[in-house]
């Protein structure tokens, strides 16, 4: 009998610390599946962020490195330049990649570093208790925008993927979501492409994943999925950006 579904080798059989309905677990698994399918588990080095996914390296079964908040792409640059034969990716949230790490992100992309970036956009800081993120939607309530994000005071949701797509050295940018099985399949395809680009030495590839945070959106898991579909993906349209 042909086996068509099993636990990915690259994903450890441990319980994660993520909240019910959180998108991190789904994306961790998609990465593990892609790593298995491309047979690169023994070449991969992950760079984890500071944020909810801070211990992501404990969930995958391959080499991993910590990075200070926002510095993942500088750390990944150091690893990849010294070990170009390895497959190096960063896994970063919106605060990490698009607020405190904006400079590292833009300059790694502008240098065309041959890296893969998995960018989790959930529109809040989850780890620290639901503060406003650079990607928080206008009017969205967070612990630091208690009456809703007011763009006149705090600016607009930052579309960093669209910004990065302007840079000539960037190979591939796509925004996906994991709010439905269909979108999960699309997300996996994009993640796979971002890894294949690195294997083929094509340069900087980034996949932005819209990911639910029911806990700090103050919703049920189901409501959160619907909110990604009906509200968040209107502000952050899905599809290939570059």
């Amino acid at each position: 009998m042909k086996r068509i579904f099993s636990h990915p080798k690259a994903l450890r059989k441990v319980a994660t610390h993520y909240c019910p309905g959180c998108g991190h677990g789904i994306v961790h698994r998609l990465i593990a599946e892609v790593v298995d399918e491309l047979r690169i588990r023994q070449r991969v080095i992950a760079v984890a962020p500071v944020g909810c996914a801070v211990v992501a390296y404990h969930y995958w079964d391959f080499d991993g490195c910590e990075a200070a908040h926002g510095r993942a792409l500088a750390v990944a640059t150091g690893i990849k330049r010294f070990r170009p034969e390895n497959i190096v990716f960063t896994y970063q949230g919106d605060g990490d990649l698009a607020a405190i790490g904006t400079a590292e992100t833009i300059h790694a992309a502008n240098r065309g570093e041959n890296l893969t970036v998995i960018f989790i956009n959930n529109a809040v800081y989850g780890m620290t208790g639901g503060q406003m993120a650079p990607t928080t939607l206008s009017g969205q309530k967070t612990s630091t925008t208690p009456s809703g994000r007011q763009v006149s005071l705090t600016g607009y949701p930052l579309k960093i993927s669209e910004l990065l797509a302007q840079l000539p050295a960037v190979r591939y940018v796509e925004r996906v979501s994991v709010h439905s099985p269909q979108e999960v399949m699309r997300a996996k395809k994009a993640i796979r492409q971002a890894f294949i680009n690195q294997i083929d030495n094509l340069g900087f590839s980034l996949v932005e994943v819209l990911s639910a945070c029911p806990t700090y959106w103050y919703m049920s898991a189901r409501q959160a999925m619907d909110w990604v579909r009906d509200v968040m993906s209107k502000e952050f349209p899905l599809g290939r950006i570059r």
């Binding site: 490195c65 500088a74 750390v75 990944a76 640059t77 400079a103 590292e104």
Partner: peptide, 19 residues
């Protein structure tokens, strides 16, 4: 690097990779 922050963190990455 684009900053001192980035430079020292590139060093961290390279050192972690054994350089």
């Amino acid at each position: 690097a684009e900053s001192e922050l980035s430079a020292i963190n590139m060093v961290l990455g390279a050192a972690a990779a054994g350089a």
